[in-house]
Structure formats: structure tokens, C-alpha cells
Amino acid sequence: MRRSQRRIVLLAMLGILVTGTLVALATVWPLFQTHRQALETRALASATAQVESLEHLLARYRELARRFTSRTEIRRHLARYAEQAENRESLVAFTTPRLVDAMLQSPDLVGLVRLGPAGQPLVTIGRTPWPSPGAERGEVPRPASMQLVTHDEQLLLEVAAPIISRDSERIGTDVLYFDPSGITALLADATRFAGDSRQWLLGPGRR
């Protein structure tokens, strides 16, 4: 009889333990799911914000390149050069100091090349992959293009914009070079939150 009673007690205790475990899991699992979904939502929102910030930064660079090409007086001298009504020395002497002044307004703009109608570099300022004016680099950037290039083993963001005359003809190209540290910082912020989410899901000491 005592053995039967002991077995009944053990089975009852086991039932209580199993029931308690199931109740705990039923309570904790939805909380875990809710928290994980919240983390995923935050990570997605963070990544979306970073993409929007990056697009805004690149749009600002394109707009800055467009402003350089639209400077009326400098563009007029380039048009005269394209028509062979002005020599190169006069064009460079007039254009260079004005482009330098414009570049000083944007601290992340580190270099600029103004190309002539045939793609030849007329003015080279600051950090650029281009050689001195008069030499050929070989490959001319396509107007309205944007790409990463290497200069002295460092990356630069190259933004090219066409220079259009008053007669709607392309008479040159401005190629601007930006320090990519702003882009790098945005990408670093985008991955930082993902790392925090992964650490919470895996638990401490399991990364």
C-alpha cells in the first residue's frame, strides 16, 4: 500500500513539474517572440533610416556637382574655349581660383577636375586620380556617373556631371572627388545595431 501511495505521490509531483514547465514556456515564449519581433522591427527601421541618409548624402553630392557645372561666368569661358575663341591659358587662369573658392564651401570635397569638350583635363585641383593638366588619364568618366576610385591607395567617391552650354550642347564635364568617410560612418552605424540584436538573441558569451 505504501509503495502504491509513494508511486501516486511521485506521479503527482511529476505532473505538477510538467504542468509548471508548460505554463512557463507558454508564458515566456510569446514574450520572447514579441521581444525578438521588436528587435527585428527596430533593426529594419534603423537600416531603412541609414539607407535614406546615404541616399540623401549622395543626392547632396550630385547637387553640388550640378552647381559647379551651372556657374554661368565660368561656363561661358569654357564655351568660348570650345568655340576656339579663348585660349587654354586664359581659361585656366580665370577658372581655377573661382573653382577653388567654390570647393572651400564643402569640406568633404577634396578634389576636382574640369574636362574640356574632348574629355581632356583643363583644370586639376586637390586630390584626384588625374595627372597634371594636359596629360591623359585614359578613361573619361561618363557624365552623371558616380563610383568609388583609388588614389594613393585610398578610396575617393567620384561624381561626374556634364557641363551644358546655353545652346544645350555638352561642352565639358566636371569630375568631383569626395572623402568617403561620411559614407563609411553611415555603413558602420547600420551594422552596429545588427550586432547588438544578434548578441541579445544568442545570449552573453555566445557570440
Rank of each mutant, 00 (worst) to 15 (best):
M1R: 14
Q5L: 13
V9W: 15
L11A: 14
L11V: 14
L14W: 07
T19E: 00
T21Q: 10
L22I: 13
L22S: 11
A26K: 08
P30H: 03
F32H: 10
T34E: 08
L39I: 00
E40W: 13
T41N: 12
L44C: 03
A45N: 06
A45K: 03
S46C: 02
V51P: 06
E52H: 14
L58P: 09
R62M: 00
E63Y: 04
E63G: 11
E63I: 10
F68S: 00
T69Y: 11
R71V: 10
T72H: 13
E73Q: 09
R75G: 09
H77I: 06
A79I: 00
Y81S: 10
A85K: 10
A85R: 12
E86Y: 04
S90W: 12
V92P: 09
F94P: 02
T95A: 13
P97I: 05
R98E: 10
A102Y: 13
M103D: 05
L104N: 14
Q105L: 13
Q105A: 15
Q105G: 15
S106I: 09
D108R: 09
D108K: 07
V110H: 07
G111M: 00
G111L: 00
L112S: 06
L112D: 01
V113W: 15
V113Q: 01
G116V: 03
P117G: 14
G119S: 09
Q120V: 06
Q120R: 15
P121A: 03
T124G: 03
T124D: 14
I125W: 10
T128P: 07
T128Q: 02
S132V: 15
S132T: 02
P133S: 13
R137Y: 01
R137V: 11
R137I: 12
E139K: 03
V140P: 04
P141G: 00
P143S: 05
A144K: 15
M146Q: 07
L148H: 13
T150D: 03
D152L: 08
D152C: 09
Q154C: 13
L157Q: 00
L157K: 00
V159I: 05
I163Y: 11
E169Y: 02
I171E: 01
T173K: 02
P180C: 00
I183N: 08
T184F: 11
T184W: 13
T184A: 14
L187W: 04
A188M: 10
D189V: 04
T191F: 14
A194Y: 07
D196E: 11
S197Q: 12
S197E: 12
R198P: 07
R198N: 02
W200K: 04
L202H: 06
G203I: 09
R206V: 14
R207H: 13
